[in-house]
Design a binder for these strands. Structure first.
Length: 791
RNA sequence: GCCUGGGUGUCGAAAUGGUAGACGAGCUAGAUUUAGGAUCUAGUGUCCGUAAGGACGUGGAGGUUCGAGUCCUCUCCCAGGCACCA
């Protein structure tokens, strides 16, 4: 073959690899495994674009690299196939979501195969397959069994367009994460998984992870631990508990404020304030969270209940108010108001004539920082941090307070009023009490006699077959739960199912989990920084806590890498915007290898960037040059080329650890340019080089490897070692007044004086130094000499 | 407001405190061709200069240092996240 023909080469090796089953792993027999995982895709009808490719190419790069390191690499692929888009498409086209999903998966598989990644397709999974969702249901039942799945009546986020409730995590600045519709509130009965029981360990576990700092920070903020104290205030009939992080400002409390929905509001409201309170409570119920925020940003509204509480230390009577800037579901739904040292309290106090007492030294009001206490009786003069502890202790001694921790994290709402998900495996008896489905009835299959029009309740509720099925299995008057599980439940455990995708007897095999987890490398987008990653960590910790998994490390993903997003002209690629760059024509024209290389060369892997449609030429030219090298093998330049290779290898080995593949390819380009301009190319160097390029360019390197006379696949060889050339020391950089003049070959062991003497005789230096006095010199041994003539 | 990241040519970017802009795109000139989103060769930060060479340049202002894109202080701008969380 004379010139680089990517079509022929790729076609040939695709077939060979498939025939040899090179990418299939016998999971039980492996002793040095490497689990390389991509966040599995949702098979949308839009297909893959060049942005999706980038993550898949990156993971495949490391999968192949680890194989060359001698690891047995497991690199699976599957589909997160339940979800709204397929259902919405089905409604629109009067079809069935399964048809859309299955069709999209077919398209995805062929597009994924174009990448040439070493996926073990024999272990592919599909979360909408009964064989998978049977075990998602099983998982839910395990939570139920341990009291961690619970049905609760509560005010929840509701998307009026998608006609379903949403988890807190799926509300993005007041809007539905999926459709962008403004989210409203609705009081309904919903299923929750008690993730808050795990808040502290989910927080602490972050410290052990090799994850990008920003993702860890996002999760920390989301969990939102705050340390403070509960304090009890007595009223006439009842006592109120508040949560505060500023016990040091206790003497500045001039009111207690409750959330309008607080259960004690009715008890505390006196007759003469009843109308005003009732009105206010009704008004705030109608507002969405966003409206509540917006309105109260201007003036903080609220009303007096008519009741007073006793301040335990000052013995003053302080008024109890309700205001919607206090949230029911944080802390105790009640706060002690310290207007002098809290901005919100300050605003409220000012507009409602509540006294403001300064208790921390400072100039402005409100002053929210820490400092020395004043107006605080025996605590005067103490610093905030000391006072906090002392006041809390003193209150505790009198049974009026204690140290406490609060979290921003809420329980995970998992029920959805939509069809295309795993049915929640619960059956209600005629009295309405929920019971788990018997295990022998799993999977609880989705009914098929359903029209998908959403209507505020699950469309499944309208299935006659589902009603009949429940009664046949459980008796007259028994009914299945008709909500389905959030798709994040499906994806919270898929990495376990990959290890035994066809096991009919259990969700996963603990022995294999022990062998293969934690996952060595997990690659996906930043968009899953909170939801998917937090839920997965929770589920995995649950499985360990209750003995389903026996691994010591309670974290599923030890190493995480976030791939940056690829956009076009600043916009996210999407079919609806019509700005999707498809990889298919690029693969056809330039080849899989060129596109793979270009995806890696675009810039640092974690950076989001704009797609430059022309840059791929550079990688294509590189491959043409590389291909040409095999045609001029000779030995004339052996030594210098080995030296160049050794330098290259040292550099890329270091870069690889930091995922700096753009510069790895730059180094490769430099070396190939050097070899390209030489008369002949060292065969040894070429063989070494080709192996180092195999992770990025599997097809062309496999071809070159064969051309170099090898019978086995290049992926059965090992990452090269250096030739051990004594890397000739770079000379000493000599500067005059910090300006580089020349690089001089110089024995490292000679003294600074000797070097200076030598340099002064060289014409380049003697000319420049003629009219100058040398004030002093700075010498860094073997590296640099700076001759200073200026004062 | 708070928490993360970032500000370097026309663009993507590179630089263990030691010649800023490697590598690539684009552009310019030339070559080549079965006219392509092809390939090959050379040049390409700004200003002064025919040239040799010099000056200036990493958002801004200071500082540390023989030496700062890199370290420190302040400040401006951009992106992302959280946001009445007590």
């Amino acid at each position: 073959m004379k010139s680089y023909d990517h079509r022929a080469i790729e076609k040939k090796w695709r077939q060979v690899w498939e025939d040899q089953k090179l990418d299939e792993v016998n999971l039980a027999k492996v002793d040095n495994g490497f689990y390389c995982l991509d966040m599995f895709p949702y098979p949308s009808g839009d297909g893959l674009h060049v942005g999706h490719w980038r993550g898949f190419v990156l993971s495949d790069y490391f999968a192949r690299y680890q194989r060359l390191q001698g690891k047995q690499v497991f690199h699976p692929m599957g589909f997160d196939a339940f979800g709204l888009p397929a259902e919405n498409a089905a409604i629109k086209k009067k079809s069935h979501p399964k048809l859309f999903t299955d069709q999209a998966i077919k398209g995805f598989i062929s597009q994924l195969k174009a990448i040439g990644a070493m996926y073990d397709w024999s272990k592919a999974i599909n979360t909408s397959d009964p064989n998978y969702y049977k075990w998602t249901q099983w998982l839910f039942l395990q939570f139920f069994k341990h009291g961690l799945a619970e049905k609760r009546d509560a005010w929840v986020n509701w998307c009026p367009k998608d006609q379903t409730v949403l988890a807190n995590e799926q509300v993005v600045s007041g809007n539905c994460e999926r459709c962008g519709m403004k989210v409203t509130k609705k009081q309904t009965s919903q299923w929750y998984l008690k993730i808050t029981d795990f808040a502290e360990e989910l927080l602490n576990g972050l410290d052990t992870l090799d994850w990008p700092e920003n993702v860890k920070t996002l999760q920390r903020n989301w969990i939102g631990r705050s340390d403070g104290a509960y304090v009890i205030f007595h009223c006439d009939k009842i006592s109120l508990q508040v949560f505060t992080t500023r016990a040091d400002t206790f003497f500045g409390v001039t009111a207690i404020v409750l959330a309008p929905e607080h259960p004690d509001v009715a008890n505390l409201t006196t007759k003469e304030h009843q109308n005003a309170v009732l009105q206010y409570v009704e008004l705030s119920k109608e507002k969405t969270d966003l409206e509540r925020q917006k309105d109260t940003n201007q003036t903080k509204t609220g009303v007096f209940t008519g009741s007073y509480a006793l301040h335990p230390l000052t013995h003053q009577q302080i008024p109890v108010w309700i205001a919607d800037y206090v949230l029911l579901n944080y802390g105790t739904g009640a706060v002690m108001m310290v207007p002098a040292h809290d901005e919100r309290d300050f605003d409220f106090a000012q507009s409602h004539n509540i006294p403001i007492i300064r208790v921390i030294e400072g100039e402005k009001l409100p002053y929210t920082g820490n400092g020395k206490l004043i107006n605080s009786n025996i605590y005067d003069g103490l610093e905030s941090d000391v006072a906090m502890i002392k006041i809390t202790e003193d209150l505790q001694r009198r049974g009026l307070g204690k140290e406490a921790v609060n979290y921003r994290l809420r329980d995970w709402l998992v029920s959805r009023q939509r069809y295309w998900g795993a049915p929640i495996p619960i059956v209600y008896d005629p009295e309405g009490t929920p019971h788990p489905i018997k295990e022998e009835h799993l999977p609880l299959l989705l009914p098929t006699d359903v029209d998908f029009q959403p209507g505020g309740e699950s469309p499944i509720k309208r299935s006659k077959e589902y009603l009949t099925r429940a009664e046949q299995l459980y008796g007259k008057g028994w009914q299945f739960e008709t909500d389905t599980l959030d798709t994040f439940v499906d994806s919270s455990w898929y990495y376990l199912r990959f290890l035994s995708p066809n096991d009919d007897s259990r969700a996963f095999d603990p022995a294999l989990v022990k062998k293969w987890l934690p996952i060595n490398l997990y690659i996906g987008g930043i968009e899953h920084a909170i939801l998917h990653l937090l839920y997965s960590r929770f589920v995995y910790r649950f499985l360990i806590k209750y003995g389903y998994v026996t691994n010591e490390n309670p974290e599923p993903f030890q190493k995480l890498f976030n791939i940056g997003m690829v956009g076009l002209n600043g916009a996210k690629m999407s079919k609806s915007k019509g700005n999707v760059i498809s990889p298919d024509p690029l693969v056809e024209h330039y080849g899989t290898d060129a596109l793979r290389g270009y995806e890696l060369f675009l810039g640092p892997m974690e950076n989001s960037l704009d797609w430059n449609p022309r840059g791929i030429n550079g990688v294509h030219r590189f491959l043409i040059k590389l291909f040409g090298l095999t045609q001029k093998i000779g030995t004339e330049n052996d030594a210098s080329q080995k030296e160049a290779f050794d330098l290259y290898l040292t550099r890329i080995n270091a870069m690889m650890k930091d995922f700096r593949l753009n510069t790895v390819l730059s180094e490769a380009m430099i070396l190939v340019n050097t070899l390209h301009t030489a008369e002949s190319v060292s065969k040894d160097v070429l063989e070494h080089l080709v192996i180092t390029l195999a992770p990025a360019f599997p097809f062309i390197t496999e071809e070159l490897w064969a051309n170099l006379g090898h019978k086995e696949s290049i992926f059965l060889s090992r990452w090269p070692k250096s030739f051990g050339t004594a890397t000739s020391k770079p000379g000493v950089k000599v500067m005059i007044d910090q300006k580089f003049v020349d690089e001089i070959d110089f024995d490292e062991d000679l003294s600074e004086d000797k070097l200076l003497e030598m340099v002064r005789e060289l014409p380049r230096f003697s000319q420049r130094l003629a009219n100058h006095e040398i004030k002093r010199t700075v010498y860094k041994k073997g590296e640099l000499l700076n001759i200073i003539t200026r004062g």
